[in-house]
Write a protein that binds this DNA or RNA. Structure first.
Length: 361
DNA sequence: AATGCGGGGTT
DNA sequence: AACCCAGCATT
């Protein structure tokens, strides 16, 4: 079977079965870019509503460039991989300042922008500007690995290169955007990871994996890294004044999880510890050392499972009667009724919802 | 070349 | 519990 025939079969399949998605049917590179960033490592159904809200809130590259970082992060809250939002914001500002608000039209230029890698550059170039750049995402890797029997690990240079080579042979030079979306939709709907729907597959007779009964053996990945645990001990300080209740939170700025989101004063340890141990080891010294406080309670540690980490978070509620210099220097004093104005990690958001919002405190 | 970065659905 | 999603940046 010639590659051009495979391409035609994929596009024919797509024209009948393609999904109706909010970013389809536009050629606005801004909206296509936003959709592609949101969909990095993110399922369609998870990203769909975020996309609609995001482009409503920031309708063009200028409104995004003019927004504050906190506004952007707030729109991104809960979606994960928060550097995407920050990089997008940076790139919007770059586009306004250095590109007159216009996207470059080819992959080589696009990839120079923050947050745009090989996949997104090819996606925007092909879908928005009809440039023949083949996308390689998780779907494409799976489809091509099975179709051509690529048995090298796709997450290593050799395997990656083999995939790209096939992708560039298969792409439709006359309709690159359509082809790219076709093979991705096909991977998402037919050639799925588990129990692919080979009986519905229009190219099964051409498929190496189908003929050799190796569908469940492809694609091949190298060994995943081991998961690690992190133990997060949060101090939920409550400062009651005459009128309002306050707590203290911090904008996370390090290159670590949840950058640019807010959390409570954090004491991280190598192993699970009680509040008493935190006190005994002096870990609370900076925050509570010279302040009179009253320990209220500790919440059952919350387990928060991520792809490559398991977080165990405990929340220790402490009443304080006045603030101190360390708190003033390193934390934001936040009115408890206004916490939800801040961009929060999912874990913190869940705790806040359970602890503060009922008829508590 | 290896590691870190989120959250959630599917199996 | 493992897998993996329209990946990218950093070291």
């Amino acid at each position: 079977m010639k590659d051009t025939a495979l391409t035609k079969k994929l596009i024919s399949w797509y024209q009948v079965h393609k999904r109706d998605l909010p970013w389809r049917g536009t050629s606005d590179p801004y909206k296509i870019w936003v959709s592609e960033i949101i969909l990095q490592q993110t399922r369609i159904e998870q990203g769909r509503d975020y996309f609609l809200r995001f482009v409503k809130f920031f309708p063009d590259v200028f409104s995004l460039a003019n927004a504050s970082r906190d506004e952007v992060m707030k729109q991104w809250q809960g979606l994960g991989y928060y550097s995407r939002a920050n990089n997008m914001h940076e790139t919007a500002k770059t586009l306004v300042k250095e590109y007159r608000g216009k996207f470059p039209e080819n992959a080589v230029e696009l990839i120079k922008l923050k947050g745009i890698g090989p996949y997104t550059a090819a996606a925007v170039a092909s879908i928005a500007f009809d440039k023949p750049a083949a996308v390689v995402d998780g779907n494409v890797i799976r489809v091509l690995s099975r179709l051509f029997g690529i048995e090298k690990a796709y997450d290593r240079p050799e395997g990656k290169q083999a995939i790209h080579k096939k992708a560039n042979k298969l792409i439709d030079q006359n309709a690159p955007g359509t082809y790219n979306q076709a093979i991705m939709d096909f991977g998402a709907m037919i050639c799925v990871p588990k129990n692919p729907l080979c009986h519905k597959c229009p190219i099964k007779e051409d498929c190496f994996a189908f003929r050799k009964e190796k569908v469940d053996l492809l694609p091949v990945a190298s060994k995943p890294a081991q998961k690690k645990n992190r133990y997060l001990n949060y101090l939920v300080l409550i400062l009651k004044t005459g009128k309002d209740d306050y707590t203290f939170m911090k904008l996370r700025t390090e290159n670590d999880i949840w950058k640019n989101l807010h959390d409570f004063p954090l004491l991280e340890t190598k192993s699970p510890v009680s509040f008493k141990t935190l006190l005994r080891k002096g870990l609370t010294a900076d925050i509570l050392g010279k302040t009179s406080f009253r320990y209220i309670e500790s919440h059952m540690p919350l387990k928060h499972q991520l792809t490559h980490r398991t977080l165990y978070a405990s929340f220790h509620v402490v009443h304080i009667h006045q603030t101190n210099q360390y708190l003033n220097r390193h934390f934001k004093k936040v009115k408890i009724s206004a916490i939800d104005q801040l961009a929060l990690p999912r874990l913190i958001d869940r705790f806040v919802e359970n602890f503060f919002s009922p008829n508590n405190s």
